[in-house]
Computed example of a mutant assay.
Amino acid sequence: MTVHIPVLAAEAIGFLDPQPGATVVDCTFGAGGHSRLLADRIGADGTLIAIDRDPDAERHFDEFAAEAACHTRFVRASFAEGLRLLVDEGVRADGVLMDLGISSMQVDTRERGFAYAYDAPLDMRMDPTQELDAREIVNTWDQRRIAQMLRQLGEERHAGRIAAGIVRAREQHPIETTTELVDVITAAVPAPARFAGGHPAKRSFQAIRIAVNGELDQIDEALPLAWELLRVDGRFAGISFHSLEDRRVKRFLVDRAQGCICPPELPVCVCDREPAAALMSRKSIQPSAGEIADNPRARSARLRGARKLREGM
């Protein structure tokens, strides 16, 4: 069985506080690290529903389900599609976990083309059956569109230079591999920036991966569905790995935790708005130094959570 180290595991389980017999949804099953901990807590009368669009995750789920003490179900879909299916079925959950971004399983499978550290075909699809892949983006999108993508989804300062470099390189021959793309990006970035702030291709690879998989649109669609799925007093926990994800989760939860929105000059409240959520913490929870030492990939993780106070919103 694959060894998987779930990020912020104790903290996420603490936020969700799953009780025996609960129904819990793991929106991004991956290799099942968080699900195993949840299954142990909900026990034989509980139900764990796992969602993932990656066929490798389904194989990990089969191993997990054979050992899990609880009832199990797997939904092969993106987390937004999977949550929509569950809502349409009338499923209600006591807890929903959303571990966003790319999984270690995907990074470490070199032929999937997610990592700039390995030479592999340009791919980056979480669902290998979808048509759009990284190769198509890099070789067919125009320079302006590539630059915009790198700037918005990767927060890349040198987006214009990198986009121009990609277009020049592909005029000679198509960019087919991760190593070829890394070389183009590195050459385009000014020399002083190559040695500051991590690998020069890090932000570009993030941007392309997000674009390939429509990750931010997925989050925007999935958060309201996850909230609708929860019973009153149910709990949501979301783990994000970069600011674009974290801002969306924060904004969604803070909006539901807000009460009166009347202008301060009004003497009394006229909006009658009541909070729909109680935040589990005022700030995001970050990994401890010990966890980062054991699992360096946890460094950028941020956990936020809330308890549902009422229906609506």
Rank of each mutant, 00 (worst) to 15 (best):
M1Q: 08
V3I: 13
I5N: 09
P6I: 07
V7I: 15
E11N: 00
A12G: 05
P18S: 05
D26K: 05
T28P: 09
G30P: 03
A31I: 09
A31F: 07
G33Q: 11
H34V: 01
L37S: 13
L38W: 09
A39H: 07
G43D: 14
G46F: 10
I49Y: 07
I49E: 03
I49M: 11
A50M: 04
I51L: 12
R53Q: 15
P55H: 01
P55E: 02
D56G: 04
A57V: 09
H60L: 06
F64C: 06
A66M: 05
E67R: 15
A68V: 09
A69N: 07
C70E: 04
C70V: 10
R76W: 05
R76V: 09
S78K: 12
S78T: 15
A80T: 00
E81F: 02
E81M: 04
G82H: 02
L85T: 13
L85Q: 15
L86W: 02
V87T: 12
E89C: 11
E89K: 07
G90M: 00
R92V: 13
A93H: 06
D94A: 10
L97M: 11
D99S: 10
I102N: 03
S103P: 00
S103M: 00
S103K: 00
M105R: 05
E111K: 04
R112C: 09
F114H: 03
A120F: 04
A120S: 13
A120Q: 11
M124S: 07
E131R: 13
L132R: 12
I137N: 10
V138R: 08
V138C: 09
T140C: 06
T140M: 02
W141Y: 14
A147Q: 08
Q148G: 10
M149L: 14
G154Q: 11
E156H: 11
E156P: 14
A159M: 02
G160N: 15
I162K: 01
G165C: 04
G165A: 05
V167C: 08
R168G: 04
A169V: 08
I175H: 05
E176C: 06
T177S: 13
L181Q: 07
I185R: 06
T186K: 12
A193D: 14
F195V: 00
H199D: 13
H199P: 03
A201L: 06
R203A: 01
S204T: 15
S204P: 03
F205R: 11
Q206C: 05
A207L: 04
I210T: 13
A211L: 07
N213Y: 13
E215I: 08
E215K: 09
E215R: 08
I219A: 00
D220H: 02
E228V: 02
L230I: 12
L230N: 12
R231P: 00
F236W: 07
I239T: 10
H242M: 03
S243W: 07
L244T: 06
E245D: 09
R248F: 01
K250T: 02
V254G: 01
C262P: 08
P263F: 01
P264R: 15
R273Q: 14
P275Y: 10
A278F: 01
S281P: 05
S284D: 10
P287V: 13
P287Q: 12
E291Q: 09
A293R: 12
D294I: 01
R297G: 08
A298S: 15
S300H: 11
S300T: 15
L303Q: 13
A306D: 12
K308L: 10
R310K: 15
